[in-house]
Nucleic acid binder design. Structure first.
Length: 556
RNA sequence: GGCCCCGUAGUUCAAAGGAUAGAACAACAGCCUUCUAAGCUGUGGAUCUAGGUUCGAUUCCUAGCGGGGUCACCA
């Protein structure tokens, strides 16, 4: 699209337009392919925009690329020659502009000793997509996970296990069992608040690496981690660096002392270490508990230091639940007061709730990733079986798995991050319309055509003159937008823009597919031209899916 | 109460201050001797309220109303 825009901008400049020129797509394709809005120009000339558009349109003469220039209201609309547009969009490679920053994206951050539910899923999906999009736009990206393997929640879980469950450990699925023990522990603590002091004692023992408790901790921690790694493998999440809270405790405590010395932190009510941020509207920030044991904040100080010192990154992006933004504002402010001038970006997504209310391990109304995956997978198993009786079971399962993951991941990514997702099983089970399977289906349709064609599609400019229809042009123009969509989605950390684009492109393709014969086109030239177009649609959809961390299928 | 996010068809969401506010789901009516009907076509249906800035506001500002979140030993 850049080549086309460059040429149009040149035409406009020759016609006397000065300054920045911005071209947009008109709302309806009949109106033209690209439009220039004349508001600025009109203002400079002191005439009304519709008049300016009319004058400007008359000054520009058609070229091989631009067939018609038309003023509609305040807009100058350019109608492009389809074959020429196809040449510039389908055949010419645009050079990518590189941002070239070194960015660490920290995401997922699950707590061991807890269950992995669909709220965690949203983070994992957004994170994977953000990492891929930032890489695509030329950044060096380090994908980091930060495991909450120590802290109050671990103490709660282990206190309960030690007290009630030492004799009934399961042989399998230890990781998810431990998560359930956490939930039971919370329930018990609610009934019996006095247990709090016992649990605090457990946390202190864990932090002082008491031998007996450490042994229990190591075993359960590993089981939790194995469970997470299994889920990441299924989801296709890969991390370059693993941080653990347990490894940040000591340095964190030291840093708290340093902040005390500098006078940035002080001892607050009850003996805890605090930073008073009330003059910044950020209340009181707690760094260390009164009994000397650590908080999230203690460890995050050390982690921030490690990220910039050890990994020498330019920016630190942290993907978190919106409920933690206040905490992160406090943390960033504290680092700033301590003299840090680093770029911290806090990418907050709204949470996933259930129709009956917020998910809470406490109330036991969480939807586990595992459960929803199994449900979607088995629904797709029967879908696939009903369509492909002849396939081997292994192939059917593999297809159902890919489709299930595409449905779940796309469902998490299609909502903008600042919208609360109300998670409904019914919606997760729908495979029509604005869904992952719809995009995969479109790719599978193209694969099928290519397979029937049976040869490599010959790509050459001479075939493109076969492209003349409106449906073809719509597709070409949409493909032309791809690079810009990637760029703005990456810059805005917004996978939903890319998800929407891939759906729109698939939709335009299916329209084309229904109206234009491909293998049975009117003549050989047209057929080849359409095959080239199909190939580029497939490539674009495939790339979009890849950037969203969604795997595709050959056929379905 | 302070601060943060969100209010658009029945529902879930679009629309860098610009053209007749777009989709999807659901509802209803059609389309498989032809490249995969997980598809396509058609029909109805919406900007929370009141001000302001602007040639122009769904978008920006102010106030209100409604929903959600958060505010010292949780993460």
């Amino acid at each position: 699209m850049d080549f086309i825009k460059d040429e149009l901008i040149k035409l406009l400049k020759t016609a006397g337009v000065a300054g920045e020129i911005d071209l947009s797509a008109p709302p309806k394709s009949e109106m033209g392919d690209l439009a220039y809005a004349c508001f600025e120009t009109a203002k400079k000339q002191g005439i009304n925009p519709a008049e300016a558009a009319k004058v400007l349109a008359q000054k520009i003469t058609p070229t091989t690329l631009v067939e018609k220039i038309e003023a509609i209201g305040p807009y100058v609309n350019f109608h492009l020659n389809t074959a020429q547009a196809a040449k510039l969009i389908l055949l010419k490679k645009e050079k990518k502009q590189k941002t070239g920053k070194k960015i660490m994206v920290e995401y997922s951050q699950p707590n061991t000793h807890k269950e992995f539910h669909v709220g965690h899923l949203r983070n994992a999906c957004i994170g994977a997509a953000v990492v891929k999009m930032l890489k695509e736009t030329g950044n060096k990206v380090i994908a980091a996970n930060y495991i909450g393997d120590i802290g109050a929640h671990v103490a709660k879980c282990l206190w309960y296990v030690k007290r009630h469950k030492m004799n009934d450990w399961p042989k399998e699925n230890l990781g998810s069992w431990i998560g359930k023990m956490y939930t039971e522990s919370v329930a018990e603590l609610e009934k019996n608040p006095d247990a709090k002091s016992e649990i605090d004692g457990v946390q202190r023992k864990l932090e002082s690496r008491d031998r007996e408790w450490s042994k229990l901790w190591e075993k359960t921690r590993k089981a939790s981690l194995d469970e997470f790694k299994r889920i990441y493998k299924l989801l296709g999440n890969e991390f370059d660096v693993w941080f653990f809270e347990s490894e940040e405790e000591n340095r964190g405590k030291e840093m708290v002392q340093e902040l005390l010395k500098k006078g940035i932190a002080k001892i607050g009510e009850g003996g805890a270490v605090i930073v008073d941020l009330s003059q910044y509207g950020l209340d009181i920030f707690l760094l260390l508990k009164s009994d000397g044991s650590t908080l999230y904040a203690t460890k995050d100080l050390a982690l921030a230091e490690k990220k910039f010192k050890k990994y020498k990154i330019d920016e630190s992006v942290v993907i978190i639940d919106t409920r933690q933004v206040f905490y992160f504002k406090q943390l960033f402010k504290t680092l700033e007061l301590a003299g840090w001038k680093k770029k911290f970006i806090c990418l907050a997504y709204e949470f996933v709730r259930l129709p009956e209310g917020a998910m809470s391990s406490r109330r036991g109304n969480v939807v586990l990733f595992e459960d929803i995956y199994n449900e979607v997978f088995s629904a797709l198993q029967s879908e696939v079986a009903s369509r492909h009786n002849d396939w081997k079971p292994a192939k059917r399962d593999e297809t159902a798995r890919a489709l299930a993951l595409s449905a779940i991941k796309f469902g998490m990514l299609k909502h903008p991050i600042d919208k609360v997702i109300e998670f409904e099983v019914k919606e997760a089970m729908s495979f029509d319309g604005y869904t992952g399977p719809y995009v995969l289906y479109t790719i599978a349709r193209i694969n099928s055509i290519m397979k029937k064609f049976g040869k490599k599609v010959p790509v050459a400019e001479k075939y493109l003159s076969g492209l003349v229809k409106g449906e073809e042009k719509n597709l070409i123009m949409k493909i032309g937008q791809f690079n810009q969509v990637i760029k703005s989605a990456a810059d805005g950390f917004d996978p939903s823009a890319l998800a929407r684009y891939s759906f729109d492109l698939a939709k335009i393709f299916n329209d084309f597919y229904g109206k234009c014969g491909i293998l049975n086109a009117d003549d050989a030239g047209q057929k080849t031209a359409r095959l080239i177009l199909c190939d580029r649609v497939r490539e674009t959809l495939g790339k979009a899916a890849e950037l969203l961390n969604i795997g595709t299928v050959e056929e379905m």
